[in-house]
Amino acid sequence: MSRSVSKSVFAVACALSLATSSAVFAQDAQNDPLEPLNRGTFAFNELLDTIFFKPVSTVWNAVLPKPVRTGVANVFGNLDDVFIGTNHLLQGRGKDAGVDFQRVLVNTTVGIGGLIDVASTQGLVKGDGDFGQTFGVWGVGSGFYLVLPVLGPSNARDTVGRGVRIVSDPRTYATPVVSYSLTGTEVVQYKADNVENANLIDSSSLDKYAFTRNLYAQRREGLVKAGREAAR
């Protein structure tokens, strides 16, 4: 009881510190007051995908052998596991955090600096965790839908979460050249990895904007729900 009270006090405090008005973070799957702006950003991202990311992804997938691509994805994934573990700790999921940090340990050593995902073959399953999810587990609502340039679907809460991630990511503090090329490589790698999904959304949606918005809201809500259940 007292634990849940202190948890909700904490959540309220967080919500208040994140935004002056708590209404900004009201829970609503279709909360999209910025729809005209978002549609504009969405169209821009679509254009960027068509003229830049799709061709680059195609070349990326064609030129680099699969083991190299997997290796690149694994290195970024290994760094991500550190953040996943941190967020699991913040959510009170000690057991899950244990798995995440074991993954980092195994992959960094046996997996040669994260190039090979040895942990997954040892039953250490990769988790889902980010700061937006952590805020959600603490009780912060998703807030309005927001399409970010290049990065795509988000919402008020998850955008703050992304900000926290950027501030706490060591890559941010590398020299600009290193920082941008690492981030660029990660984005291209991610896009190349998700070409199949993007095609699936293309072929199945009537209004891609509304479809994507809905998928994003459902996915994030599911992750927060899963986080809460695991924290119990």
Binding site: S205, L206, D207, A210, F211, N214, L215, Q218, R219, G222
Partner: peptide
């Protein structure tokens, strides 16, 4: 799929259209 309901995914689109 991973907490994304197929039926709900189409609801926003259909309602909007």
């Amino acid at each position: 799929v991973e907490n994304i309901s197929l039926v709900s995914a189409y609801r926003d689109e259909f309602t909007g259209l």
